[in-house]
């Protein structure tokens, strides 16, 4: 019921030409960090839903319309990975993980579970806000498509059909479930077939970062995307790796 209430409220405000306040769910067990980050997010004009544990997070997610999840990996009981896995079963909501170590397995593990980005503790407010804004900015596939080129209603590659405006990908008419980042990555590559994109370029165009993203973001998302759209993910034909340089979407196969 809560989710519907939120939607109704948001739509009412839209009707009144009030800017829609995006809702961020903040999952963090430390009270001080949680309340401070809440204030920072509210300063940005965002609505915040707090959760101190994994179970609370799952519960809150089902009751509110959430536009972005800020998820600490170290949680007592059900940890951040479990929460991420569970959320991804039913939702493509953008997820930013909060990890302790930049070069730990946590980062890769979280990204492989479907997180869209990560920040490392201790972060400062500028870093955090840059990532939050980047994720919210490209929430809708249609917006990104419009920003990068002429709107096309349909792009066909082999038996794949990408519908940028609807934010959907079909294979033989069946929809493939992609997260928003995965979709935008595919869409971006498909808009420029056979062109080589470096990791940095993809970070800039798909994630919206200049000079500060992590190449592993691109690599893990490419891997997840391949697992979903390639007939044989071990021998990718559509999304090809150019060793050391980046990726390219091939319309001709190998």
């Amino acid at each position: 019921m809560g989710a519907i209430d939120d939607r109704v409220r948001n739509e009412e405000r839209m009707g009144e030409h009030v800017m829609v306040a995006d809702t961020v769910m903040l999952v963090e067990d430390d009270h001080a960090v949680r309340s401070l980050v809440r204030l920072l997010l509210e300063d940005e004009g965002l609505t915040v839903v707090e959760a101190a544990t994994g179970t609370e997070a799952i519960d809150a997610f089902s009751r509110h319309a959430i536009d972005l999840v800020l998820l600490d990996i170290r949680l007592p009981g059900m940890n951040g990975f479990d929460v991420c896995r569970q959320l991804r079963r039913s939702s493509d909501v953008p997820i930013i993980m909060v990890t302790a170590q930049q070069d730990s397995h946590d980062v890769v593990a979280g990204l492989e579970l479907g997180a869209d980005d990560y920040v490392t503790k201790p972060f400062n407010d500028r870093e955090l806000m840059a990532r939050v804004r980047a994720q919210l900015r490209r929430r809708s596939g249609a917006v990104a498509a419009a920003a990068t080129g002429p709107i096309r209603t349909s792009i066909v590659i082999g038996d794949l059909e990408i519908r940028p405006v609807e934010g959907r990908v079909l294979r033989d008419g069946e929809e493939i479930a992609l997260t928003k980042t995965e979709f935008q990555l595919l869409n971006h590559l498909a808009l420029h077939p056979n062109r080589l994109w470096s990791r940095d370029q993809l970070l800039e165009h798909v994630w919206g970062y200049a000079y500060q993203g992590d190449g592993r973001l691109v690599d893990t998302h490419i891997a997840r995307l391949r697992a979903k759209v390639e007939p044989d993910p071990a021998n990718p034909e559509i999304i090809q790796t150019v060793r050391g340089l980046g990726y390219r979407l091939s319309t001709t196969g190998r």
Partner: peptide, 16 residues
């Protein structure tokens, strides 16, 4: 972990 959390809180507080 023990150092990161208070540092995050401090950085956020200062930012605020």
């Amino acid at each position: 972990h023990e150092l990161r959390t208070p540092l995050t809180a401090m950085a956020s507080a200062v930012g605020l």
